[in-house]
Design a binder for these strands. Structure first.
Lengths: 253, 253
DNA sequence: CGTTCGATTGAGGAAGATCAATTAATGTGG
DNA sequence: CCACATTAATTGATCTTCCTCAATCGAACG
């Protein structure tokens, strides 16, 4: 039952019609990038791990589209609390939170080498009149972000720690699937502390949860480096998320 | 130090420039409603507690703007988990989550008698070409929702239960202040279970946290009905949120 | 090759969940 | 308007999960 192939495309359609929607989503990303490149030649910027494309409180001017790499979005409270609220992958937009207040409420921090395209907001609005598809794309991206943030909240509120970590990996795998990348391997470019912050638990709990998943052969670590995770069967991972809910079941502790 | 006046306007600007922004925000709501009424005569619909303006999974056609009343937005997972992810007040928009997928991912449930305006999405897009201000308004509303959802996530992830309940009341009071309503009284039109669901804790914990706040005279209950909460001093409530963070301090247990 | 940072693992404690019983509020039919 | 039924809220007594503290181990880097 374990799927150990390295098929780069989504290997398993879990509950619903994810295969088809994955394809559509994959095309969506490419189309978005092409459309933007066409309508407003965006300014490209190469970033490296640790770079901040914008800081919390900086005045808003640009949206950004992530062409490659990985970003974390960090919310900053007045009292200094920091919270990773979102992770961004290729094709995702950054900076929507700045529109309303005229300044970003979060920081966007690169977690890897990558490239972002800066999209001046006013230029975008102008371009939208000429290319109506652009407006649809923009709204879809904002809508998706809203839906996604709500899923995060639900995960934090309803899942126990183990299941939450499993769900986190699931979501990451799904993000990769949507982009036509392999779902059987995830390279976590973040520390246990960052993961824990994002999921609302301590780094020790993250470590223990990952260890438990590995013990149950639901995930496996690469020989070297505890940051690249192999997922032999995404469905098994999704099933584990469910298991954490109803019956305590007979799971190897 | 306690502020027991019934001044209907925001009584105290807590950390930042909230007085000015509250005024701006209050005008914003009125302007939005006027603008919409003007540009697209929206269909009005009266709702009563329990009514669902749209269900999770229903096909998306309309956005809605809340003219009066109170709504909860309930996210529904495939496995049946339900999660209150947001509360909506006068002037708030509902249904953004439906744009991307063509169907709503959440349900919008009235918690009180009220009125919503249905805004057909395509009609809105058309109207936006004629009234550019409408587009700005729309984007601001979506942006604000994104920022707000992130604040919720941060609250759940970083605050202990007591402080989370206090923060919840603070946010509610701030919402009322933005709309020019009194901040010294909140009528919770939801059960402890609903609050607990929203905040990621059990109803018993909500009850105990409220009791603790009342014992410390940070809030008070009306003679009858444990659902209307008096807040003598919003700053004291905000201070309590902070206190839950650094030092255990000397607070009456 | 030592230093540093990240990850793992264990032991103990505390916050909050669960279970259970009691006490309000609210609503209903007589 | 009252007795009763029903749902919501409170409060207490455990119990579990997860956090905290601490030690060890591993990997990366100068």
């Amino acid at each position: 039952m374990h799927n150990t192939t390295t098929n780069p495309v989504a290997t398993a359609a879990a509950p619903s019609d994810s295969t088809r929607s994955d394809h559509l989503a994959g095309e969506r990303t490419a189309e978005t990038l092409a459309l933007l490149k066409n309508a407003i030649s965006p300014q490209r910027r190469v970033v490296h791990a640790g770079d901040e494309v914008y800081q919390a409180g900086a005045s808003f001017r640009n949206l950004y589209v992530l062409n490659s790499g990985l970003f974390k979005i960090v919310n900053l409270a007045a009292d200094g609390r920091e919270q990773v609220v979102s992770l961004k992958f290729r094709g995702d937009w950054l900076g929507f939170d700045g529109i309303a207040q005229g300044r970003y409420s979060c920081a966007a921090v690169a977690m890897d080498t990558g490239e972002v395209w800066a999209i001046p907001y006013d230029a975008l609005l102008n371009a939208c009149t000429a290319h109506p598809a652009l407006l649809t794309t923009l709204h879809s991206a904002m809508s998706r972000e809203i839906a996604r943030d709500r899923d995060s909240l639900m995960s934090v509120c309803t899942l126990p720690a183990d299941a939450r970590v499993a769900d986190f990996l699931c979501q990451w795998a799904a993000s990769q699937a949507q982009r036509g990348m392999r779902t059987d391997q995830i390279i976590l470019r973040m520390t246990r502390a960052e993961i824990g912050n994002y999921l609302g638990m301590t780094l020790e709990t993250v470590s223990r949860s990952l260890a438990k998943l590995a013990r149950g052969n639901i995930i496996a670590f690469a020989e070297k480096g505890r940051r690249d995770v192999h997922i032999p069967d995404v469905n098994a991972l999704a099933a584990f998320v469910q298991r954490g809910l109803a019956p305590p079941a007979l799971m190897l502790q």
